[in-house]
Amino acid sequence: MRSTRVAEWMLSQLTTSERAEAVIGDLLEKVPARGALWFWWSVVTTAAALVWRDVAANPLRTFGLGLTGFVVVLVLFVLLVFVATAALVLGLIVFSSISDAQRVVGVTHLVTGGWSWVVLTVVFWCVLAGVQFQVGRWLARRSPGHELAPCVAFTVVGLTCSLVLVLVFPQSTRDPIRDAASAVLLVVLDLPLYAGAVKVRKKRLVSG
């Protein structure tokens, strides 16, 4: 199995690299009898158990950090939306002061080209990812030895908030597939947060 390096890397983010190596070696010994699916299931459940161990080591502090990080990202997200809206309004004001001929050209370009919206969306999500990356680093620095635990708490807080929103504002027609896709998207959007934490962990291990 060539992809075991990925599994080993995953576990080494949650325990020492020597221990991760030994665990993967143990699981590989059983692969001929149990199969690749069992291997990956075991890697995921072992990772979950290691994360839970880190969270359970100090649950109040971990969830406190996760909640703080979540509030920071939420505030910055609102600010970002505010700035983007302000820029759009400003653009419209400038736009209304130009001649009709220029306006027709501009609107045609915006509607038919559509690239400006794509660029705007990409820039927006890149800035948000940058914010999450920095928050991930900040959380990891406050939890040495358990860098990923506050990030997991952050994700749990995010999912809980979205669940509360669903319960408080129920829709007449619920689509479970769309709800599940939204939950997965929420987790995927947190990836820059984990990347920031992984970077801090790597730096700590290198510096000894």
């Binding site: 075991t4 325990t15 020597e18 590989l28 075991s42 459940t45 072992t46 158990a49 161990r53």
Partner: peptide, 29 residues
Amino acid sequence: PGALYTTLDRMEDKGLVTSRYGQATPQRG
């Protein structure tokens, strides 16, 4: 495996067991 390895790590932290690393084998990649 998750339950076993977290228990072993915890017991090592408590000083109930010690661990050492053996030789690498091809069977284990």
